[in-house]
């Protein structure tokens, strides 16, 4: 009985350790992703199409459950992104549904939490339709059709889905594309 309890405790500790390790890895990707998202927004040469009638550029951080995390990231991003290409930036934390139902032009959207297949698909479709630069720091999302993400190999690089780029008709600086890792397959 005592032995079984010991094994259970050990299993619990190991499971928690793995969970913590996984969380810290995802947090690190998200943190680095925010910086690359900003550089990606700056490299968008078609940003003027996304200026709202009130002359603002709208950027969204999308969450499903963890709004607090989204707000933390928003404050980190907002500190250096008050103005973009001379236009005031409006940074909003929105839920998935709010994003999907949004009517205003959106320059870029950052996925704060890992989405399931159906939600991600809906977001990708919405971003292509609205020519929104959708960014996900999570591994595998770019391959599924998200516009941009991060590639972590021997060096950290922007990761761009070229098919989505073509479909959404977003134009990027050639310089930026040169240093980015490109994904060519269809979504």
């Amino acid at each position: 009985m005592v032995k079984a309890l010991h094994i259970f405790c050990l299993w619990l500790i190991l499971a928690m350790s793995f969970s913590v390790a996984a969380d810290s890895f995802t947090d690190r990707r998200t943190s680095v992703g925010i910086k690359l998202f900003r550089s990606m927004l700056v490299s968008n040469t078609a940003y003027l199409d996304k200026v709202t009638p009130s002359g603002e550029l709208h950027i969204k951080l999308i969450y499903t459950q963890n709004a607090r995390k989204a707000h933390t990231l928003a404050s980190s991003l907002g500190a250096d992104l008050k103005v973009l290409q001379g236009k005031p930036v409006v940074l909003e934390v929105v839920s998935l549904n709010e994003f999907l139902n949004s009517k205003t032009p959106i320059l870029g959207a950052f996925i704060v939490q890992k989405m399931n297949g159906a939600n991600l698909k809906a977001m990708i479709d919405k971003s292509i339709l609205g020519q929104t630069l959708l960014f996900s720091p999570f591994e595998g999302d770019v391959e599924k059709g998200v516009f941009g993400g991060i590639s972590v190999e021997s060096k950290v690089r922007p990761f761009i889905n070229m098919t989505t780029l073509k479909k959404s008709k977003i134009t990027m600086k050639a310089f930026y594309l040169r240093v980015s890792k490109k994904h060519e397959s269809s979504t």
């Binding site: 900003r38 550089s39 927004l41 700056v42 250096d80 060096k155 040169r178 240093v179």
Partner: peptide, 16 residues
């Protein structure tokens, strides 16, 4: 040969 993006602290791409 290694190509590296030189970025400003604000995230702007300065050079390759």
């Amino acid at each position: 040969i290694s190509e590296v993006a030189v970025m400003a602290g604000t995230g702007e791409l300065l050079a390759i």
